[in-house]
Protein backbone atom coordinates (compact mmCIF):
# COMPACT_ATOMS: atom_id res chain seq x y z
CA UNK A 1 0.00 0.00 0.00
CA UNK A 2 1.50 3.30 -1.08
CA UNK A 3 0.23 6.83 -0.53
CA UNK A 4 -1.28 7.14 -4.05
CA UNK A 5 -3.21 3.92 -3.66
CA UNK A 6 -4.53 4.90 -0.23
CA UNK A 7 -5.46 8.39 -1.44
CA UNK A 8 -7.22 6.82 -4.44
CA UNK A 9 -9.25 4.46 -2.29
CA UNK A 10 -10.19 7.23 0.14
CA UNK A 11 -11.20 9.46 -2.75
CA UNK A 12 -13.38 6.65 -4.11
CA UNK A 13 -14.95 6.14 -0.71
CA UNK A 14 -15.49 9.89 -0.29
CA UNK A 15 -17.26 10.07 -3.68
CA UNK A 16 -19.68 7.32 -2.72
CA UNK A 17 -20.39 8.94 0.68
CA UNK A 18 -20.92 12.38 -0.90
CA UNK A 19 -23.44 10.90 -3.33
CA UNK A 20 -25.37 9.05 -0.63
CA UNK A 21 -25.42 12.10 1.65
CA UNK A 22 -26.52 14.37 -1.16
CA UNK A 23 -29.48 12.15 -2.00
CA UNK A 24 -30.35 11.58 1.66
CA UNK A 25 -30.08 15.20 2.84
CA UNK A 26 -31.88 16.77 -0.12
CA UNK A 27 -34.38 13.89 -0.35
CA UNK A 28 -33.74 14.02 -4.08
CA UNK A 29 -31.64 12.38 -6.77
CA UNK A 30 -32.15 15.15 -9.31
CA UNK A 31 -29.11 15.55 -11.55
CA UNK A 32 -27.81 12.04 -10.85
CA UNK A 33 -27.78 9.43 -13.59
CA UNK A 34 -29.44 6.20 -12.43
CA UNK A 35 -27.90 4.49 -15.44
CA UNK A 36 -24.35 5.31 -14.30
CA UNK A 37 -25.26 4.02 -10.85
CA UNK A 38 -26.60 0.77 -12.34
CA UNK A 39 -23.34 0.38 -14.29
CA UNK A 40 -21.28 0.97 -11.13
CA UNK A 41 -23.33 -1.67 -9.30
CA UNK A 42 -22.57 -4.13 -12.12
CA UNK A 43 -18.87 -3.14 -11.89
CA UNK A 44 -18.68 -3.88 -8.15
CA UNK A 45 -20.66 -7.10 -8.35
CA UNK A 46 -18.60 -8.58 -11.19
CA UNK A 47 -15.24 -7.44 -9.79
CA UNK A 48 -15.69 -8.33 -6.15
CA UNK A 49 -16.87 -11.91 -6.68
CA UNK A 50 -13.40 -12.84 -5.41
CA UNK A 51 -14.65 -11.96 -1.91
CA UNK A 52 -15.85 -15.57 -1.91
CA UNK A 53 -12.72 -17.15 -3.34
CA UNK A 54 -9.65 -15.18 -2.24
CA UNK A 55 -8.85 -13.48 1.04
CA UNK A 56 -6.36 -10.64 0.70
CA UNK A 57 -6.70 -8.49 3.80
CA UNK A 58 -9.33 -7.18 6.18
CA UNK A 59 -8.96 -3.74 4.56
CA UNK A 60 -9.55 -5.23 1.11
CA UNK A 61 -12.62 -7.21 2.14
CA UNK A 62 -14.20 -4.37 4.10
CA UNK A 63 -13.73 -1.88 1.26
CA UNK A 64 -15.27 -4.31 -1.24
CA UNK A 65 -18.27 -4.92 1.00
CA UNK A 66 -18.68 -1.16 1.61
CA UNK A 67 -18.58 -0.41 -2.13
CA UNK A 68 -21.17 -3.08 -2.91
CA UNK A 69 -23.43 -2.04 -0.01
CA UNK A 70 -23.19 1.69 -0.80
CA UNK A 71 -23.90 1.01 -4.45
CA UNK A 72 -26.98 -1.01 -3.51
CA UNK A 73 -28.13 1.72 -1.12
CA UNK A 74 -27.73 4.35 -3.84
CA UNK A 75 -29.84 2.31 -6.25
CA UNK A 76 -32.47 1.80 -3.56
CA UNK A 77 -32.67 5.54 -2.85
CA UNK A 78 -32.85 6.38 -6.56
CA UNK A 79 -35.21 3.72 -7.83
CA UNK A 80 -37.41 3.15 -4.77
CA UNK A 81 -37.35 5.74 -2.00
CA UNK A 82 -36.88 8.94 -4.00
CA UNK A 83 -38.03 7.57 -7.35
CA UNK A 84 -40.28 10.61 -7.90
CA UNK A 85 -37.25 12.92 -8.04
CA UNK A 86 -35.36 10.82 -10.57
CA UNK A 87 -34.66 12.69 -13.78
CA UNK A 88 -35.89 10.07 -16.28
CA UNK A 89 -36.16 12.29 -19.32
CA UNK A 90 -32.59 13.56 -19.25
CA UNK A 91 -31.05 10.20 -18.28
CA UNK A 92 -31.43 8.82 -21.77
CA UNK A 93 -28.00 7.33 -22.50
CA UNK A 94 -28.30 3.85 -24.05
CA UNK A 95 -26.22 1.67 -21.73
CA UNK A 96 -26.24 -1.32 -24.08
CA UNK A 97 -23.80 0.70 -26.22
CA UNK A 98 -21.36 0.43 -23.31
CA UNK A 99 -22.24 -3.02 -21.96
CA UNK A 100 -22.00 -4.97 -25.23
CA UNK A 101 -18.58 -3.63 -26.33
CA UNK A 102 -17.22 -4.23 -22.81
CA UNK A 103 -18.42 -7.86 -22.86
CA UNK A 104 -16.86 -8.43 -26.29
CA UNK A 105 -13.58 -6.72 -25.34
CA UNK A 106 -13.36 -8.70 -22.09
CA UNK A 107 -13.78 -11.94 -24.05
CA UNK A 108 -11.02 -10.97 -26.48
CA UNK A 109 -8.48 -9.15 -24.33
CA UNK A 110 -8.02 -10.67 -20.87
CA UNK A 111 -5.27 -12.12 -18.70
CA UNK A 112 -6.78 -15.60 -18.59
CA UNK A 113 -9.82 -17.21 -20.22
CA UNK A 114 -11.61 -18.16 -16.99
CA UNK A 115 -15.00 -16.99 -15.71
CA UNK A 116 -13.57 -15.02 -12.78
CA UNK A 117 -10.87 -13.39 -14.86
CA UNK A 118 -13.25 -12.43 -17.69
CA UNK A 119 -15.73 -10.94 -15.20
CA UNK A 120 -12.90 -8.98 -13.57
CA UNK A 121 -11.73 -7.72 -16.97
CA UNK A 122 -15.30 -6.82 -17.96
CA UNK A 123 -15.69 -4.82 -14.75
CA UNK A 124 -12.45 -2.93 -15.42
CA UNK A 125 -13.55 -2.01 -18.96
CA UNK A 126 -17.07 -1.13 -17.81
CA UNK A 127 -15.84 1.05 -14.97
CA UNK A 128 -13.77 3.09 -17.38
CA UNK A 129 -16.89 4.20 -19.27
CA UNK A 130 -19.58 3.89 -16.57
CA UNK A 131 -19.57 7.63 -15.90
CA UNK A 132 -20.63 8.47 -19.47
CA UNK A 133 -24.41 8.44 -18.77
CA UNK A 134 -23.76 10.86 -15.88
CA UNK A 135 -21.64 13.19 -18.03
CA UNK A 136 -24.28 12.90 -20.76
CA UNK A 137 -26.99 13.94 -18.26
CA UNK A 138 -24.92 16.94 -17.14
CA UNK A 139 -24.37 17.96 -20.75
CA UNK A 140 -28.10 17.62 -21.50
CA UNK A 141 -29.22 19.76 -18.57
CA UNK A 142 -26.21 22.07 -19.09
CA UNK A 143 -25.42 22.31 -15.38
CA UNK A 144 -24.65 20.39 -12.22
CA UNK A 145 -25.20 21.23 -8.57
CA UNK A 146 -22.00 21.91 -6.62
CA UNK A 147 -22.42 18.76 -4.56
CA UNK A 148 -22.76 16.67 -7.73
CA UNK A 149 -19.57 18.33 -9.00
CA UNK A 150 -17.73 17.41 -5.81
CA UNK A 151 -18.93 13.83 -6.24
CA UNK A 152 -17.68 13.72 -9.82
CA UNK A 153 -14.35 15.27 -8.86
CA UNK A 154 -13.73 12.74 -6.08
CA UNK A 155 -14.78 9.86 -8.33
CA UNK A 156 -12.56 11.04 -11.19
CA UNK A 157 -9.58 11.67 -8.89
CA UNK A 158 -9.69 8.11 -7.64
CA UNK A 159 -8.60 6.53 -10.93
CA UNK A 160 -6.11 9.33 -11.62
CA UNK A 161 -4.50 8.55 -8.24
CA UNK A 162 -4.47 4.86 -9.17
CA UNK A 163 -2.47 5.77 -12.29
CA UNK A 164 0.19 7.31 -10.00
CA UNK A 165 -0.02 4.17 -7.84
CA UNK A 166 0.68 2.00 -10.90
CA UNK A 167 3.67 4.14 -11.89
CA UNK A 168 4.96 3.82 -8.31
CA UNK A 169 4.39 0.06 -8.27
CA UNK A 170 6.10 -0.34 -11.62
CA UNK A 171 9.16 1.40 -10.22
CA UNK A 172 9.05 -0.28 -6.81
CA UNK A 173 7.92 -3.78 -7.82
CA UNK A 174 8.71 -3.90 -11.58
CA UNK A 175 5.17 -5.09 -11.98
CA UNK A 176 2.33 -3.71 -14.06
CA UNK A 177 -1.11 -4.60 -15.39
CA UNK A 178 -1.72 -3.42 -18.95
CA UNK A 179 -5.50 -3.97 -18.86
CA UNK A 180 -5.95 -1.87 -15.73
CA UNK A 181 -3.54 0.81 -16.99
CA UNK A 182 -5.25 1.08 -20.38
CA UNK A 183 -8.73 1.28 -18.83
CA UNK A 184 -7.53 3.64 -16.10
CA UNK A 185 -6.08 6.03 -18.69
CA UNK A 186 -9.34 5.97 -20.68
CA UNK A 187 -11.34 6.53 -17.50
CA UNK A 188 -9.21 9.49 -16.43
CA UNK A 189 -9.29 11.07 -19.89
CA UNK A 190 -13.10 11.02 -19.84
CA UNK A 191 -13.02 13.24 -16.75
CA UNK A 192 -10.50 15.77 -18.08
CA UNK A 193 -13.08 18.15 -19.51
CA UNK A 194 -14.99 18.00 -16.24
CA UNK A 195 -11.81 18.52 -14.17
CA UNK A 196 -11.12 21.67 -16.16
CA UNK A 197 -14.61 23.06 -15.49
CA UNK A 198 -14.42 22.02 -11.83
CA UNK A 199 -11.15 23.85 -11.24
CA UNK A 200 -12.02 26.96 -13.24
CA UNK A 201 -15.61 27.30 -12.00
CA UNK A 202 -16.71 25.23 -9.01
CA UNK A 203 -13.62 25.92 -6.91
CA UNK A 204 -14.15 29.66 -7.50
CA UNK A 205 -17.62 29.39 -6.00
CA UNK A 206 -19.49 29.35 -9.28
CA UNK A 207 -22.02 26.77 -10.35
CA UNK A 208 -20.90 24.27 -12.97
CA UNK A 209 -22.67 25.54 -16.04
CA UNK A 210 -21.78 24.48 -19.53
CA UNK A 211 -21.41 27.15 -22.21
CA UNK A 212 -24.57 27.29 -24.30
Amino acid sequence: MNIFRLAGDLSHLLAIIILLLKIWKTRSCAGISGKSQVLFAIVYLTRYLDLFTTYISLYNSIMKIVFIAASGATLYLMYVKFKATYDHNHDSFRIEFLLIPCVILALIINHDFTVMEILWTFSIYLESVAILPQLFLVSKTGEAESITSHYLFALGSYRALYLLNWIYRYMAESHYDLIAIFAGVVQTILYCDFFYLYITKVLKGKKLQLPA
Partner: peptide, 10 residues
Amino acid sequence: FGKLRFKDEL
Protein backbone atom coordinates in the same frame (compact mmCIF):
# COMPACT_ATOMS: atom_id res chain seq x y z
CA PHE B 1 -1.27 -10.18 -21.74
CA GLY B 2 0.06 -12.51 -19.11
CA LYS B 3 -1.20 -13.00 -15.57
CA LEU B 4 -0.05 -9.68 -14.33
CA ARG B 5 -2.95 -8.24 -12.42
CA PHE B 6 -2.73 -6.85 -8.93
CA LYS B 7 -5.19 -8.97 -6.98
CA ASP B 8 -4.87 -6.74 -3.93
CA GLU B 9 -6.32 -3.70 -5.69
CA LEU B 10 -9.92 -2.56 -5.55
